[in-house]
Design a protein around this nucleic acid. Structure first.
Lengths: 190, 190
DNA sequence: GTCTATAATTCGATAGAC
DNA sequence: GTCTATCGAATTATAGAC
């Protein structure tokens, strides 16, 4: 054999299982997906899921893993931050292999998903905002930003409210971005 | 017996089951609550749940039933509408026997809950806004309003993000109300 | 009207043959 | 490395005694 095996057989089945799991978890959420569903969708034996990932929780953890990569807000014009953040998150939600849709669907039924979401929408966004605001303010502003971003995600991807689904990405960037801008640089209530 | 039976025995157990179901569904969501959990919390036999409500779906449907009672916006000063709506929903989320928290927790795992939420946050809010805007505009504005209200609910009651939980009701009314006001009477993006 | 006992499924996980 | 067979636990729902 002059040619090495391109991909080990096991790595291919592992990847196939992971891809199937991501799609199903993003579609139905943690509890409505069974190990058997994942295996069937990938055309692989259910026992392989346990073999490669240890448990259902194991494959969920892997499916929900991803890097958020928030942009460094110091490189953004101060009055464009709201729109930049909105555009960034809309791109993430729409990318099909991202873990964020997986988390979104499962945050109310799976502890790991709930914890990861809390980390992203509390710690990470706050950290990003600390680049342009004091640490105390940053947390409150991050909370407000999170409420609008998460609500947008729920309406557009979980509830699929017609008017929110229908709006174009650029329309949303303008409208929601303006709100975020107010939450980030506007006056906070007493 | 001079005194009639105040409440039939069956009606009391039925009511006790329903109350237990509401609390549990609001706390954990549809899938994480079993018929046995409900019965145990009410101190009643699990078989009674089926007897009185037919199925787990049956008791969930009853637990999620409620009247939204949106305020008539024509009776509100035009530039106070945002705050009025915010205050109204915050009151609903906080009232423990309301069905809205039940729906919120289960919208991602239960079809009925999902459909009811869509109806409330699309049809009902849109109808309320039609009192002060044209029907075409009203739907889009209702979508934006829904995204912010739902996001607030998710952050405060499901994810329990510390800064959002910590904010007082009046702080939220001011901040979120200002956003809703913009969505309701402000300019829409092209 | 209420409870005991259990039927009927479904699921995650394991053991072991190939 | 993959699949067959199955276990054990949990769940909804039913049948029938009391």
């Amino acid at each position: 054999m002059a040619e090495k095996t391109r991909t080990p057989k096991s790595a291919r089945t592992r990847a196939a299982l992971l891809e199937a799991a991501r799609e199903l978890f993003a579609e139905r959420g943690y509890v409505k997906v069974t190990v058997r569903d994942i295996a069937a969708k990938a055309g692989i034996d259910p026992a392989m899921v346990i073999r490669y990932f240890g448990s259902k929780d194991g494959i969920f953890a892997d499916a929900a893993e991803f890097n958020l990569e928030l942009p460094d807000l110091r490189g953004v014009a101060r009055n464009s931050i709201g729109e930049a953040l909105t555009r960034h998150f809309l791109s993430i939600w729409d990318s099909p292999d991202a873990g964020l849709p997986v988390l979104l669907r499962s945050a109310s039924t799976n502890e790991l998903a709930n914890a990861r979401m809390r980390e992203i929408f509390n710690k990470q966004i706050r950290t990003a905002l600390e680049a342009i605001a004091g640490p105390d303010e940053a947390e409150q502003r991050a909370g407000l930003v999170s409420s609008q971003l998460l609500g947008l995600a729920v309406c557009r991807y979980v509830l699929k409210l017609p008017p929110v689904v229908r709006m174009s990405k650029e329309q949303l960037v303008k409208t929601i971005g303006k709100t975020l801008q107010q939450y980030i640089t506007g006056r906070l209530p007493r």
